[in-house]
């Protein structure tokens, strides 16, 4: 099918979203004196059985929570950080019993692996990378990609973990001569990796050979785009971007997510869907997460908005609870749940 001009999703959507599409399943509070910075879901092996666990990160502590029978959560492991604060959790698919975290002040200075020693189940942390880390992403098949440094001094590295999270192998990818800001794996092509750069290019690598295959310049209307998801279909590359720096326009309102189609052979691209805030909603994107065909964003207004990229419109709005703005939103990788967090450590789990 030919792809026609950009559709604008979310305008006006007030009468089309379904508030019941998000149902509260459980909630818990992470008691910590520091600010809550991230939340994630992962599988953790306990006594030979894999359980879907929740990881919470505050600036000075990362905790692992296991589920109890009654939709309650119990804290089972805690790792403390006294020197450099935690910035984000870096989930690594296909690795059990290992959590990666990025630490730093404004920028990432360290990536650490958090694990438990098998003998006494005591918490350990191992420094994996240090330096001026610009981007990091966990990839399938137990791999972690990071870019360290800028411009010509940049190194793009893939680290592969053993199944138990232990020994590792490293490989370099050919760096582009521009700073990589975000990475995304390409569904449908297991050895392809995308990156977005500071000068609005999307770069494509071959993970197996380390080759830099293509640079695609995308529309300059949105600077510093973040790539959340990419998939290849029918010879085209579909890329979901968010635009944290986008300004509100009269025509479209506030664009939050954009679906872009790229022909990797010719480096030509075209926007096909723009997800904007529903009428009556103000603000910009603070942080977002995309899983399959659903995109969720925390807005500067403190509300969470969810878009269905196949329907092409906003399907749910989650206003602040107990007068407290939302600050975190993540899709669970273990089930179809949405994890929503507030700065004081409250975590709410919604079924989508």
């Amino acid at each position: 099918h030919s792809i026609e001009q950009t559709d604008v999703a979310g305008l006006p959507a007030q009468d089309t979203w379904n508030p019941s599409s998000l149902q509260l399943v459980s909630k818990f509070k992470n008691p910590s004196s520091s600010c809550s910075v991230d939340v994630s879901a992962m599988w953790w092996d306990r006594a030979g059985a894999q359980e879907p666990c929740i990881v919470t990160a505050c600036e000075d502590v990362v905790s692992l929570w296991k589920p109890l029978d009654t939709l309650q959560w119990e804290k089972v492991h805690t790792w403390h950080f006294t020197e450099v604060p935690v910035l984000q959790i870096v989930p690594v698919p296909d690795v059990y019993n290992l959590i990666c975290v990025a630490l730093g002040n404004l920028e990432i200075r360290e990536i650490r692996a958090l694990l438990c020693s098998s003998g006494d189940e005591s918490e350990k942390q191992v420094l994996l990378k240090s330096g001026n880390i610009k981007a990091v992403l966990g990839l399938t098949k137990r791999r972690l990609v990071s870019s360290i440094g800028t411009f010509c001094s940049q190194q793009v590295q893939i680290m592969t973990f053993a199944e138990d999270g232990g020994s590792k192998d490293e490989q370099l990818l050919m760096p582009p001569d521009e700073t990589v800001m975000t990475f995304a794996e390409v569904q449908g092509i297991q050895d392809a990796l995308l990156g977005t750069t500071t000068v609005n290019n999307i770069v494509i690598w071959n993970l197996k050979t380390g080759q830099l295959l293509k640079k695609v310049h995308i529309d300059d209307s949105y600077q510093a785009s973040v790539c959340h998801r990419a998939y290849s279909e029918m010879g085209l590359l579909f890329v979901v971007l968010s635009h944290p720096c986008a300004k509100e326009s009269q025509a479209f309102g506030s664009p939050v997510f954009q679906l872009l189609v790229i022909n990797p052979k010719t480096a030509q691209s075209v926007g096909v869907l723009l997800c904007c805030l529903p009428e009556g909603q103000a603000g910009r994107l603070l942080e977002g997460d995309v899983k399959d065909h659903v995109a969720a964003a925390v807005l500067t207004s403190g509300t969470i908005a969810v878009w269905d990229l196949t329907l092409g419109h906003c399907i749910a709005l989650l206003p602040p609870v107990s007068n407290q703005n939302w600050s975190l939103v993540k899709w669970s990788v273990t089930d179809s749940h949405l994890l929503a967090g507030q700065k004081d450590g409250n975590i709410f789990i919604y079924r989508y």
Binding site: I3, T209, L212, L236, N263, P264, K265, T266, Q268, V270
Partner: peptide, 23 residues
């Protein structure tokens, strides 16, 4: 704009670009 603006499409783009790119 439409896919016609994107130029010729190849289902094997990844393999083709890998064979053309410098090692």
């Amino acid at each position: 704009c439409s896919t016609a603006d994107l130029g010729p499409i190849s289902l094997n783009w990844f393999e083709e670009l890998s064979s053309e790119a410098p090692p």
